[in-house]
Structure formats: structure tokens, C-alpha cells
Design a protein around this nucleic acid. Structure first.
Length: 420
RNA sequence: CGGGCUGUAGUGGAUCGGUACCACGCUUGGUUUGGGACCAAGAAGCAGUGGGUUCAAUUCCCACCAGCCCGACCA
């Protein structure tokens, strides 16, 4: 992508009352634009990151047998009355309104009410189970207080997977596989997620949250320095400073962002819609369910909270909007031709490149923008490099740059960049 | 929903009650080129909305709306 044509610009200044790091850097970098509190437009750069996160999640969901569907966000009241959630707790978080006539509608903040009847239509025998369906779709929640940039929105992208099983052991087994897939997703996205036990809330006593430790988090998790004990503060019996009951290690409390959670719903929703299946022996049995969510925008925000410095963002390679950022530093014609040629040859080799071909901006602006945008690899063509007939290569996270001739560059990129 | 702070060109900020100023950005022309460079000439505003006080309100008061933050809330 030629940066001169890219929609969205980096900003030098921001409304001074914005405190959240992810909001500041993503707004300044031209990744997102705020429509209102808790509601953002993803500009081309931000959308590229979001789509990379989505692609990564899809890979791992497909790997554990998930099949992607897309359900409506607009729901009829009746679907929610069946499970008793139209009034409580629905009314608290659900946008509800009436349409033509007296027909009542709500916007989906979760999809058990839709997917359970859907699965029921197609599942009747043990042969149809287990079944794992997921979607990546916009959720709406009437949050009492949207805040912290992408971390808590009123409208946000969520991956929600629902699994259906014929037995509790099958549910348990899949739950563990989903847990593993989640840890893999967060690791690939550059996040160290703490697997945290949490309360099951309204419909289950089993639940795990995936928490990313950062001062920007709104949750508090209680962890042990010595073992992998981790519980949400709401249910933790140990507190900061205690000696761990498992390993005597030091218990600590830390702030964290909840980027995902998984639940065993068991029969909470299948019972409500009388969803049963015929077993091998001909008997009718209840279907068991699990649900597994990841907030994509929240993942993106958490990545920025964890991976940034005073100059800007440092995107992990797997989610970066582009693999490389090519800067044409000066405006000289010969230099422009060299840079254009390199851009073309990188594209031909299959690399995703943002090419700063802007003529009007100063050198300082280009360098500052590159740091702010945070693409992992920076390539510079300037009068200096042209003289030596080489290209400057620098990793965003490292201070030193190296020079190399073009013929070595492609080889180097292939080793450094995971995806081509 | 309680509390605090804030609303002024596209953006960020000034403006002891006398109808608005600066910087950035933008437009035109020129110069410059390794960390947001310089010169010149421009364009750009119902001062969040409504009410009140006053001869006079961007400025003081009230209400509402919006934004940020703290708390409550949150599968």
C-alpha cells in the first residue's frame, strides 16, 4: 500500500483528557476513529490488524473442529423469553426496542438464544454430535460505562464458539482442547494470557478467563509467584501477601485485561428449548453445551497496552497491519525510482508492505510515523543508502539498523518474517 | 446510576463581561532534507444546546447534552 493513498492520517495531537494508552496510540496512529464513547470505526490500518487477529483465531478454531457460521445481530424478543433472559439480566446489557407495530427486538450481546434452537433443528441423533459452531460478529452491549479505548465498547467484534455434546466427558474433553487453542491464539498474538479460574456467573460454576496482566486492566487476578495458581479476585480465597496453599509461593494481586473466557453451560440453554438427542440405545438424552468467547477489539487494545514504547506501537509480527514499512526518505527523483522498484519487487515476492512514498512530509515525520504505526520491520531508502547501493533494515523493537544489498534483503525477510 | 474534570476553526490550546487569538493541519508559491524543517500569501468559527443575570455573555449562574476519569455495574 502506498502511504500517500492510505485513508487515515497520523495525528500529532489528541484530546488531552484521553488517558488510555491503547486509545491514544491507535487514534494517533490512524488505526481507529471514535464515533462516540465505546464505538469506533476501524480505519484501513486498524482493520488490517483486526482481520489478522480474526484470521489467527479462525485457524485455531478450525483446528479444533469449529465450523464458521454467521448469525443475525437483530433478535426477536421471543427467542430471549424462552430462556428467561429478556428481562433479567438482559435488560441490563441488551439494547431493546420496538420495530413496526408492537414487535419487540433486541441486539445480540451473546448468542445462546439463537444458536441453541439452530443446532436443535439439525441435531437429532448421537451421530450428529459433537458439534462446534462459531462466528466472528459484532456484539452490542449497553455498557453503563464504556471506556479505555478498545477495551470496553458498546459495539465490538467477538468470536463466540458454542459446542454441543452428548456426554459430560465429551464436553470436558473438548473444554480442555478449547483451553489449549485459546492459549495458542493469545501466544501467537503476542499476549501472555494467564489462565484464571472464575465464577460461572448466572449459569455455570465452571469458567475460565484468559487474563493479560497490565496496569491498564480493569480486572484483578490473584496469582502465585511459585505455581500456576490464578483466580479472579471475585472468587479467590487467598489474598496478596499470603503463602500459596498449594506451593507456599507468594500470592500477588495484579490488574489484568480479560481477553477471553470459556464456560461449561451444560444444559442451561438446551433444557430451555428442549434440545435432546437420540442415543445409540434409542433413549432420549439432554445435549450439553459449552461456550467460548474472545473479544477481538479487546485483544487489539491489550496488544497495544503490552507492546508499546514512548514513540508508539510495537506490533507482534502475526497481527501487524503490514510486514514491512518501506520509507523513501528524501524526494530526489533517482531515489524515488529505486524505492518504487524495491516496493514492486517486495510485492512480487509476496510481502505485505506499507510504502511511505509521501512527497510532502519531512524526514522527521516519516521516521516518527513509522515508529508510531509500529510495523515490525523498517526499510529505508535515502541518499545515504543510495550512495552505498544498499538498503537500511531495522526492527521496530531494536535501536540499531543494518545495511544490506537488495539481493540479500529478500532472503533476510524470508527468514525474519513468519508469513510471506 | 453517584462523584470529579472538560466542551472555543479539521486538531490541540489562549481569551480579569465589551462579538475571538495562537500553534499544528489545510490551499498556493518557493526553499530544505537522517528525527514532526523554513519563508511568503491565503481559506477556515452560530464559542456543545437551551435558558437566566447584564446596557453588553465565549467569559458569570442554572439545566440539558456530549467526552474523559474514579466508583457502582459487568457470562
Amino acid at each position: 500500500m502506498r502511504q500517500s493513498l492510505l485513508f487515515g492520517k497520523t495525528l500529532r495531537e489528541l484530546q488531552s483528557d484521553e488517558v488510555s494508552v491503547n486509545a491514544k496510540l491507535l487514534l494517533r496512529g490512524g488505526f481507529i476513529d471514535k464515533l462516540m464513547s465505546g464505538s469506533y470505526t476501524y480505519l484501513p490500518l486498524g482493520l488490517a490488524v483486526l482481520q489478522n487477529i480474526a484470521a489467527l483465531i479462525r485457524q485455531e478454531m478450525n483446528a479444533i473442529g469449529g465450523q464458521e457460521v454467521l448469525m443475525p445481530a437483530l433478535h426477536p424478543k421471543e427467542a430471549w423469553e424462552q430462556t428467561g433472559r429478556w428481562k433479567d439480566p438482559g435488560r441490563e446489557v441488551m439494547f431493546q426496542f420496538s420495530g413496526r407495530g408492537d414487535r419487540q427486538y433486541g441486539l445480540g450481546w451473546t448468542h445462546e438464544e439463537i444458536i441453541t434452537p439452530l443446532a436443535k433443528k439439525f441435531v437429532s441423533s448421537y451421530k450428529d454430535l459433537p458439534l462446534k459452531l462459531y462466528q466472528i460478529q459484532t456484539k452490542f452491549r449497553d455498557e453503563p460505562r464504556a471506556k479505555s479505548g478498545l477495551l470496553r465498547g458498546r459495539e465490538f467484534m467477538m468470536k463466540d464458539l458454542y459446542s454441543f455434546h452428548g456426554s459430560e466427558t465429551d464436553l470436558d474433553e473438548f473444554y480442555e482442547r478449547a483451553k489449549g487453542a485459546y492459549l495458542k491464539i493469545f501466544k501467537r498474538a503476542g499476549l501472555e494470557a494467564i489462565l484464571t479460574e472464575a465464577s460461572g456467573g448466572a449459569f455455570s460454576q465452571y469458567s475460565h478467563e484468559f487474563q493479560v496482566a497490565t496496569p491498564a486492566g480493569e480486572d484483578i487476578v490473584i496469582t502465585c509467584a511459585g505455581c500456576d495458581y490464578a483466580q479472579n479476585r471475585e472468587i479467590a480465597k487467598q489474598k496478596s501477601g499470603d503463602a500459596c496453599t498449594r506451593c507456599k509461593g507468594e500470592i500477588q494481586a495484579q490488574r489484568a485485561i480479560e481477553v477471553g473466557n470459556i464456560f461449561k453451560l451444560k444444559t442451561r440453554f438446551t433444557e430451555a428449548v428442549r434440545f435432546t438427542y437420540r442415543g445409540e440405545d434409542g433413549t432420549s438424552n439432554p445435549v450439553l453445551m459449552g461456550c467460548y468467547g474472545i473479544g477481538l477489539g479487546r485483544v487489539m487494545g491489550a496488544i497495544v497496552e503490552v507492546h508499546h514504547d514512548e514513540r508508539g506501537i510495537l506490533w507482534p509480527e502475526a497481527v501487524a497491519p503490514f510486514s514491512a514499512h518501506l520509507l523513501r526518505l528524501q524526494r530526489d527523483r533517482r531515489l524515488g525510482k529505486t524505492a518504487d522498484a524495491l516496493y514492486a519487487s517486495l510485492q512480487k515476492s509476496g510481502f505485505s508492505v506499507l510504502y511511505d512514498d509521501r512527497e510532502e512530509s519531512s524526514i522527521g515525520e516519516k521516521l516518527a510515523d513509522a515508529d508510531l504505526i509500529g510495523i515490525p520491520l523498517r526499510l529505508v531508502i535515502s541518499e545515504k543508502t543510495l550512495e552505498k547501493n544498499q538498503i537500511e533494515v531495522k526492527l521496530r523493537g531494536e535501536p540499531a539498523a543494518a545495511l544490506m544489498p537488495e539481493k540479500d534483503l529478500i532472503k533476510y525477510l524470508k527468514t525474519v518474517l513468519g508469513r510471506v
